[in-house]
């Protein structure tokens, strides 16, 4: 199995902040907005270096989305920043009408997604955001897996014309993808080749999938691991090529199984190449307070849960 090294735990939101710093220096059209969460979004450096290109909107996310839409009229590329919950559910109609339907080039950048926000609990732990955003026509949905990939994704979406939802998280997690990678929107990354089962993961679950693959290798099971950082548009070819080889699949995500990556993959499979699929995802519930590790254990979103799902799907082959 291909070996990946954690170069030191880092939060993906800091990858966003680092990406914004680069954009601040390289792309004069990029502007940033924030709804009273500068520290959480890690964009202080961008603000210090480009004060005229930063807009503090206060605790008023609906207004932030509208202002962002308006800023595109005049060729700015606005990046909005707040928690995932307040980036989606709270402002769905603003995104729908003023950004998506209006075809505005706004980058909706959402931190603290999923359960790993931790102790704040369910009011802040959105597990429905991927579904909400992927349903909007024309919206690109990206959930990178580590610091380096989040930084690369942040830089890449500035070059993409059209609305993007970029989802990342709060906790420090393994940083294992290349430092200066080029991020290709819509292109899945084959992290480990395997023959018995395909594991398709997104966000924080990608590292867990690699750990799971190692554990499976010790059991004599050869797992193919694919990092699907772009949920929409989904790299259908990568998924289909893999299941053609393995004949079964496990999807893994820090999201409700309604509306998430798993459902997107299932649609591709039933239309093209039906194979057994198991879901590692939140089973239609809200979250709760706890440490990220406790929550991922309780809600079965870690490497152990992936191994269990693989064992189950192999029996259905």
């Amino acid at each position: 199995m291909k070996k990946y090294t954690d170069t030191g735990k880092k939060d993906t939101r800091s990858g966003y902040g680092a990406g914004m710093t680069v954009l601040g220096r390289t792309n004069p059209d990029v502007v940033a907005l924030c709804a009273d969460l500068i520290g959480s979004l890690k964009i202080q450096e961008f603000i210090d270096e480009n004060p005229e290109r930063f807009f503090q909107v206060g605790i008023a996310e609906a207004n932030m989305m509208g202002i962002a839409a308006g800023l595109t009229i005049g060729e700015k590329i606005p990046f909005t920043g707040t928690f995932a919950n307040f980036s989606t559910g709270r402002v769905y109609d603003q995104i729908r009408q003023s950004i998506a339907y209006s075809g505005k080039n706004v980058k909706i950048c959402a931190s603290h997604a999923g359960l790993t926000l931790g102790e704040d609990g369910a009011t802040h732990q959105i597990l429905e955001d991927i579904g909400l955003m992927k349903m909007l026509p024309g919206m690109t949905v990206i959930n990178p897996c580590d610091y380096n990939q989040t930084k690369a994704a942040t830089i890449a979406i500035a070059e993409h014309e059209g609305p993007v939802y970029l989802r990342f998280g709060r906790p420090a997690v393994a940083n294992f993808t290349p430092e200066d990678q080029k991020f290709e929107i819509g292109k899945a990354l084959l992290l480990n080749e395997g023959t018995d089962v395909t594991i398709v993961a997104t966000g924080h679950l990608v590292w867990e999938a690699l750990i799971a693959a190692e554990a499976l290798e010790n059991q004599g099971i050869s797992a193919e691991v694919i990092d699907i950082h772009t949920i929409k548009p989904l790299d259908e070819e990568a998924v289909l090529a893999s299941v053609a080889k393995t004949g079964c699949i496990v999807t893994a995500e820090e999201h409700n199984y309604y509306g998430g990556l798993g459902e997107s993959v299932a649609r591709v499979l039933v239309q093209n190449h039906p194979v057994p699929q198991e879901f590692v995802a939140v089973k239609d519930s809200f979250g709760e307070s706890g440490t990220p590790a406790q929550l991922m254990e309780k809600y079965e979103l870690n490497n152990k849960a992936i191994v269990k799902a693989v064992e189950k799907v192999l029996k259905r082959k």
Binding site: A62, G66, I67, A68, A69, G70, L71, I73
Partner: peptide
């Protein structure tokens, strides 16, 4: 929603 958009355009 229009006032927010107009403000954004004015800022641009």
């Amino acid at each position: 929603q229009g006032m927010s958009v107009a403000i954004g355009a004015a800022l641009a």
